[in-house]
């Protein structure tokens, strides 16, 4: 079959007539070292395609568009709003505040958690669909802060819900909150490729 080199169509050649193959297809694969993308079939026919595990792709999508539940309780809420405003812009990270818990990914608990508020917090956390993360912002949400051992304060929001990132400060600067969000993004990316099987060949497991 005549192959017209100048046509813009991508045509997949047949296996026998394939030129320029020094080693057979699949010879670059070594178990335990990961697929060498330069030798893969797909790279010879579609040279500018990116391959990745689907987990990593989903993690990239999730971390680049984190919708936070607008949940400012106390003083830290003002710094959270400042972080969303135009000076320290959180929108460039894809972070948008969303009032409804049913469509939010992250809950930034900003402020003191009071015992009267504990039930609503649990309800809101359970209303958020998976995957969801929690950032505890400020020292009140971390461990009670300046109201340590007061009669009506819960010593940190991690008594109620699991927390992923703690941002210390009273109140933390907007830059600190942005750093916390970036740490959460790294965590989302790393968690996607983590596997829990025994004897796994994943690089992350060896580090632990």
């Amino acid at each position: 079959m005549e192959i017209d080199q100048n046509s813009p169509n991508i045509h997949i050649p047949r296996l026998e007539g394939f030129t320029g193959a020094e080693k057979p297809l699949g010879a670059g694969y070594e178990p335990g070292k990961g697929n060498n993308p330069a030798d893969s079939v797909l790279n010879r026919v579609l040279p500018n395609a990116l391959t990745a595990k689907s987990d990593e792709l989903f993690a990239l999508a999730r971390k680049s568009s984190l919708w936070t539940l607008s949940f400012g309780l106390a003083c830290c809420a003002i710094e959270m709003i400042s972080a969303h405003a135009s000076h320290h812009d959180l929108d460039r990270f894809g972070v948008v505040t969303w009032p409804s818990p049913r469509q939010a990914d992250v809950m930034i608990v900003a402020g003191t958690v009071v015992k009267k508020m504990a039930d609503p917090i649990k309800l809101l956390y359970e209303q958020m669909p998976d995957p969801k993360w929690v950032i505890a912002m400020g020292s009140c949400a971390t461990n009670g802060g300046p109201y340590y051992k007061s009669y009506s304060v819960v010593m940190g929001v991690d008594h109620l819900i699991p927390v992923d990132v703690y941002v210390p400060g009273c109140p933390p600067r907007p830059e600190a909150l942005i750093y916390g969000v970036m740490q959460l993004q790294e965590k989302i990316q790393k968690d996607a490729t983590q596997s829990f099987d025994k004897g796994s060949s994943d690089k992350n497991d060896e580090e632990q």
Binding site: L73, G111, V114, P120
Partner: peptide, 11 residues
């Protein structure tokens, strides 16, 4: 109200 009562006066 009372969802942010932290007991400041007692502290």
């Amino acid at each position: 109200i009372g969802y942010l009562h932290r007991g400041s006066e007692k502290i």
